[in-house]
Design a protein around this nucleic acid. Structure first.
Lengths: 341, 341
DNA sequence: AAACATAACGCAAACGTTTGCGGTAACGTT
DNA sequence: AACGTTACCGCAAACGTTTGCGTTATGTTT
């Protein structure tokens, strides 16, 4: 199992030169003659020399590891982001440690601590659902570059990368209005959800802009949005005296639940009630009718977040970088809002 | 940004004792008096002491990092495994570095190299689709504990954790036979896919056991199984003179494609043609009719793989551990095979 | 009282790498 | 001939931690 490991020392001994020369040769230091440089490199290759990352990281206080903390790895959207983060990390010569909080604030704090202790060069993080005390994060931010994505908080002064949910929702609602819908319901989360709240703002603005009165009965909220909640809240909506003629859900899962319930009660989609989701998840094209939804470009988020982080790591500023990058998104129109006129 | 960092040295200076004593105190070495031990620990806490992992790993040649290499992180099944790996890693005090190969053999080799160079304590790996040259993996296996899961190869002498696809498929096919199906088609991958091949063996055995002749026209293969391929291969199947009365797909995605095509041609599911998939993915309950499928307990795989690896790391043997752990799975019967008799 | 055991701690080396500084030789310049 | 320059290389310290061994003081046994 154990293998003889080649070090600079060994190479130096064989070649009868000093360790420093070997080190410099391998790092292309100009002080080394082309001849020795070549000898060293050849031997290093032959002996399968691998620099000991620990000695290296130990010396130069740089680990080339980036920590990523997300609530739930099972989410397709998150996976998309992770995929791109991994790619960009590789391109930039970093490795990635991933941790999951499962929306547990205590764990979130622990993971943050572990990562710092481990000496990551920077942190990419998506907050868990009920992070109220941001002190641990501020503390981390004080030590290493940290960037928030998707699930963010305006209480934390750092670079944040998010989807422009406000405008996205605005467009989606206007699309519903354009196809003649007037009683547009929304299924959302409670106020503490940043994303939900922004989407709700877009909903309100679209209605206001188009002079449609706001009916509080058409605004329903839940703590844990899901397919099941989509179903139950939809039952609630269609039992109203004045039914909605469209339902906007801040999540594809909820939208699919809505569709299932509507079909169960033989309500025609989109003629009677149109449905829009949010995410452009895989399921949105499997469900029938296919779901109109808002694309969530996870790739872009991952790409931007990672590149911002690398910049902050490699070009450290005196003061914290505070900026919010909002990524525009597209409405993908499918059968659930496609009126065949 | 930079923060004063507390080291053993600093604590030692303040307390006017030696560094070794501080180290031992924090590591609960018996040589240290309870009194000093307490003083040290108190001060350490007060100064937010964090052991420098690099100095530590450097000293004891142990990183407490485990490398995970998978073909594609976007797969729900893989995500499930990863989720459990992360959990078990945390429980056992390890951190996890994840890399994606995207089924690129060259990248696979690189990742392996990087991980070894980085000094991971062990590797968990799922092979990419077309890994033929296993030398790099053998080389890695020679240096550190390595365990394969899901996508494995019998050319590599190590612990392997897989789903018992043979028996699973056998059960699925027998289920089809039990509901009266006789011309059972299979949509699979070409021979080089280990998993596909094992499932195919189960298919053959089930037919043989039940004295059903094998019709080669009902066996279709592809290199890249997917939803689209599920569609096209199904069109191919239903254009046969003697149509199948059931289709078994080695993948949920392909099965959903099959369902879509069957519906398009107004073929009744399951009366005319029944469909079974493999994975119990999220989509399998969204599609209509809901898909009968085989559960893939990713959680179990992740759990077992991780625990085996930890054992191999912490209790090293002289010889390589060679064993294959096959996890049984359940048939989940849903509408796509539910004949309402 | 001598010999020994024990508890508690310090010394110093070691892990593999990087790097500032200094040194040597060879050459070119006045 | 004396000096400056350049190219190339080695010495040794440093990073923070662990650990074998040595040391001291104290207590215990004969």
């Amino acid at each position: 199992m154990k293998k003889e490991v080649t070090t600079l020392k060994k190479i130096a001994q064989i070649l009868e030169i000093s360790i420093s020369t070997v080190s410099r040769a391998l790092n292309n230091h100009p002080d080394i003659s082309h001849e020795t440089s070549k000898k060293v490199k050849d031997l290093a290759r032959k002996l399968h020399y691998m620099p000991n990352m620990f000695a290296k990281g130990f010396r130069q206080h740089k680990t080339n590891i980036i920590g990523v903390i997300v609530p739930n790895i099972l989410s397709y959207f998150i996976s998309t982001i992770l995929k791109e983060i991994l790619l960009q990390a590789e391109v930039n010569g970093y490795r990635v440690i991933i941790s999951e909080t499962n929306n547990d604030v205590k764990k979130e704090k622990e993971m943050l601590h572990t990562m710092l202790q481990f000496g990551v060069d920077g942190i990419l993080m998506s907050l868990s659902k009920n992070t109220v005390n941001v002190d641990p994060i501020l503390h981390a931010l004080n030590q290493k570059p940290l960037i928030l994505f998707d699930k963010v908080s305006n209480k934390i002064p750092c670079t944040q990368v998010i989807i422009d949910g406000e405008e996205a929702t605005f467009n989606a609602i206007e699309h519903l209005i354009n196809i003649g819908k007037k009683r547009i319901a929304i299924i959302k989360e409670f106020e503490q959800s940043y994303n939900s709240e922004r989407r709700f703002q877009g909903y309100l603005r679209a209605l206001k802009t188009n002079n449609i009165p706001i009916d509080k009965k058409l605004i329903v909220s839940t703590h844990d949005i899901s397919l099941k909640k989509g179903r139950s809240l939809t039952s609630q909506l269609i039992s109203l005296k004045e039914k909605p003629d469209a339902i906007f859900c801040i999540t594809d899962a909820a939208a699919i639940g809505a569709i299932q319930t509507l079909k169960k009660f033989n309500i025609k989609i989109p003629e009677d009630i149109a449905v829009i989701g949010f995410s452009n998840s895989l399921n949105s094209t499997i469900v029938e009718p296919k779901l109109t939804t808002l694309d969530q470009p996870g790739k872009r988020i991952g790409e931007i977040a990672m590149n911002c982080l690398v910049t902050e790591i490699e070009e450290p500023k005196e003061h914290l970088t505070i900026k919010t990058i909002e990524i525009k998104t597209n409405l993908i129109i499918r059968e659930s809002t496609l009126l065949s006129i």
